[in-house]
């Protein structure tokens, strides 16, 4: 329901209009808490908007689980050298061993410690997720917003290209690109993932931009003498925080899964320890035949848990922009 309809129906049990998507408490504290000491012409900065969004996400139980899970992986990635018992490429141990006090998850067929590899592997996934997610979101924001704000032929052309990128199967394209660019390592993988991963976000942000630009406050900003640049970045952008956050987590999830897939096919740097390359070596050294199920199980579980944590966070983000999806019993 748009705000306009809510007004016409007029059944909000409060004298003033309820705030959009329940950010009321956050607003009240920032504004009323400031009393008379308000900076001249200060809108809520993007940072306070983000902080507020984070607070609302935290209030959704599923999202809270996701944030905690994500924090665990990020901490593991950052402190890997402290947490891991051995260097990930140290292959001086007995080969293909089962679990033991010295090697809780056993060793690989090349004689490396599985637990250490697992901890170090989080670095690649977290890095790829964050960097590629950020890159894809950046393209999505820039393209989606300018596409939503322009009209006419240019918009039609962009529309065609975004739709093309949406329907072209991403992973095959990544595989082809990676095959040509072999030897490019992690940077190549991130590049390939970004190139193929921005279209969905661009589409979502485009339609939101379009719906916002038809609102009167955008026309009003034009009448206040604002430049197009300022209208896009000061009037429209701050109203899309939740959608942008959502597309970031969506793109990061896709990036993590894509990286693991490419590494599993051996298209990344096979010497680099990542969860995908662990599975590549496990498959190539026939871990299935030797019965080393931990080698198969653990890296994939980590990928799945990391991706799940991002999806769970997005449950909270969804509730920000769509009150109907908030937790609760329907009927």
């Amino acid at each position: 329901m748009t705000e306009k309809e809510a007004t016409a129906q007029g059944e909000a049990p409060e004298p003033t209009q309820p705030p959009p998507s329940g950010r009321k408490n956050a607003y009240n504290t920032t504004v009323d808490g400031g009393g008379g000491l308000v900076r001249v012409g200060a809108p809520p900065s993007p940072l306070t908007v983000l902080g507020r969004a984070a607070g609302t996400i935290w209030s959704v139980p599923k999202a809270r689980v996701g944030l905690i899970l994500l924090a665990v992986f990020v901490l593991a990635a950052v402190f890997a050298p402290l947490l891991a018992p051995y260097a990930p490429t140290d292959n001086s141990f007995a080969r293909a061993e089962g679990g033991s006090p010295a090697h809780p998850l056993g060793t690989t067929t090349a004689g490396e410690d599985v637990l250490s590899q697992l901890i170090y592997g989080s670095r690649v996934s977290v890095l790829v997720g964050m960097v590629a997610g950020f890159g894809a979101t950046l393209i999505a924001v820039l393209l989606g917003m300018s596409w939503g704000y322009t009209r006419g032929f240019a918009a039609d052309v962009i529309n065609f290209f975004v739709n093309l990128f949406l329907v072209i199967p991403g992973l095959p394209l990544m595989i082809v690109l990676a095959a040509y660019l072999q030897g490019g390592g992690l940077a190549m993988i991130i590049f390939v993932v970004v190139i193929t991963g921005w279209a969905w976000g661009a589409r979502v942000l485009r339609s939101q931009t379009q719906s916002l630009r038809s609102r009167d406050f955008i026309t009003a900003a034009q009448f206040s003498g604002e430049s197009s640049f300022r209208i896009v970045f000061r009037e429209i952008l701050p109203n899309m925080t939740s959608l942008i956050t959502g597309s970031f987590f969506g793109a990061a999830t896709a990036a993590i899964l894509a990286e693991s897939g490419l590494s599993f096919l051996g298209l990344g740097d096979t010497a680099m320890v990542s969860w995908g390359s662990m599975l590549f070596w496990a498959q190539n050294s026939n871990a299935i035949l030797t019965g080393q199920w931990v080698l198969l199980f653990a890296p994939g579980l980590c990928i799945a848990l990391l991706a799940t944590s991002l999806t769970l966070i997005n449950f909270g983000v969804d509730g920000l922009s769509n009150p109907r999806l908030r937790e609760g019993k329907g009927r």
Partner: peptide
């Protein structure tokens, strides 16, 4: 659904291959 859709396809495949196949 949230959890399984986060599985990498090839990992699900490896697990099924290992447990149900081998």
């Amino acid at each position: 659904g949230t959890f399984t859709s986060a599985f990498p396809y090839f990992w699900t495949a490896l697990l099924l291959l290992f447990f149900l196949g081998y």
